[in-house]
Design a protein around this nucleic acid. Sequence first.
DNA 1: AGTGGTTCAATGGTCCAACCAATTTCTGCA
DNA 2: TGCAGAAATTGGTTGGACCATTGAACCACT
Lengths: 243, 243
Amino acid sequence: MTDLLPPIQTTARDDAVLKALAGFVRQEALGPGEKLPTERILAERLKVSRNTVREALTRWEGLGLVERRQGSGTYLKAAVSPDMLHMPLTLAGGNDFAGLMSTLEIRRALEAEAAALCAIRAGKAELAEIERKLDLMEEAFQTRAGMSSEEDWEFHQAVFRASGNPLFEQIIAAMYEMFHRFWEHPLGVRDFGHASFPYHRTIFNCIAARDPDGARAEALKLIATVEDDLKRGAANLKLSDRR
Amino acid sequence: MTDLLPPIQTTARDDAVLKALAGFVRQEALGPGEKLPTERILAERLKVSRNTVREALTRWEGLGLVERRQGSGTYLKAAVSPDMLHMPLTLAGGNDFAGLMSTLEIRRALEAEAAALCAIRAGKAELAEIERKLDLMEEAFQTRAGMSSEEDWEFHQAVFRASGNPLFEQIIAAMYEMFHRFWEHPLGVRDFGHASFPYHRTIFNCIAARDPDGARAEALKLIATVEDDLKRGAANLKLSDRR
DNA sequence: AGTGGTTCAATGGTCCAACCAATTTCTGCA
DNA sequence: TGCAGAAATTGGTTGGACCATTGAACCACT
């Protein structure tokens, strides 16, 4: 019945500090990379203890909004506005074949959707950026005769960014991280990722042609090749070297 | 060239504290709701200052893993294992409607995939559980003449669980939480969710019939109705009451 | 001019010892 | 037995101190 009676907040110093700090960042128009006031100065200005300031900054650090460098200062790592919404996502993934497949299933769903949305929404600038990343990737592929994780990932990121939905990039980044956490060497499959190579351009072509369904289909094919590689790798070494 | 020279880590007390604490939780087999040692005790046992312990716990609190109650103690809020991946999602606010649509786009991608996987993998027990939740939801719909968030969510959860991939439930739970944080009152749409009602059963029918493509299609229709409700709501009150 | 070493102030990281505020537990009276 | 008040427990806050790292200024030497 009385569900809408949130407990009153008699003490919430850290939150108050963060609110004030967010306001300060906005007023000063601070962007990523810029340095914000010293802990000691903040403590003095806000009339709270330095410990309280530190707890507040620890929160922001945990959210990836801020980076603290001892001896140097505290720097903004992302754009911060007073009305942001944070939702911590903690994934308890198993470090085994099933875990890898789990991340791939998520990627399959999200990459397909993101590619389709991208085909609908990407502007000219975003399109150009994607093509640039694609060229870089293809060049790296020719030069080093193999897939480059770095350039490959940057291409995908460009697509996610152009999807107009920031959540895609963030969530898939988590999947990517889980995937790479124990994929230090390619599971014995020497040409891991080779098969996925051509689909990068086909995805881009569909996006450039404003063909959402095509983009989705090509993205699905790409993920399918990765799943295939993974299964081959699992068969190869039977996952004996668990991390 | 020398890309593989990561900066060395000379100090990382709080991380060490969290690692130790995670190990403790695992060894003691502590679950959600259970109380963990006092800050003072932790400080003494780990031979670190209480301040350090507090910074570590502040991190976990920010991640939603733990809840601190003054005068009472610190309690686990979620299962915690030493090898978890934390990925704070942050939605740069501004426009409420855009934020809601962002979460819905993720849901569209994941719910469709989960429903399809569920149609392939669900066992008899899982199928029965889903149907039970469906019955409960339909009963609540008749009784209260409206969608019930609670029973509706439980139905979807049952589907995700039966998908065989725990990541679906975890990620969509985060989306669900974000969605409800925006949607404190139903945006002026009195029959929000009504249109989605019939699709719950059609989804279940497809799953029971082992029809992945059908399940995916019905899930997409369901999300489409929610998006529709949302757009209606946005048009209604023109988003004048920004939080 | 430039290279490398030294000094020194600024800054985040840690520690300590109190005290405050909310909660829980215990105690003693009715 | 029941309950109000005292006492202990626990997270929240404060202030002050010191350590470790950083970066800039300065200096000596080539």
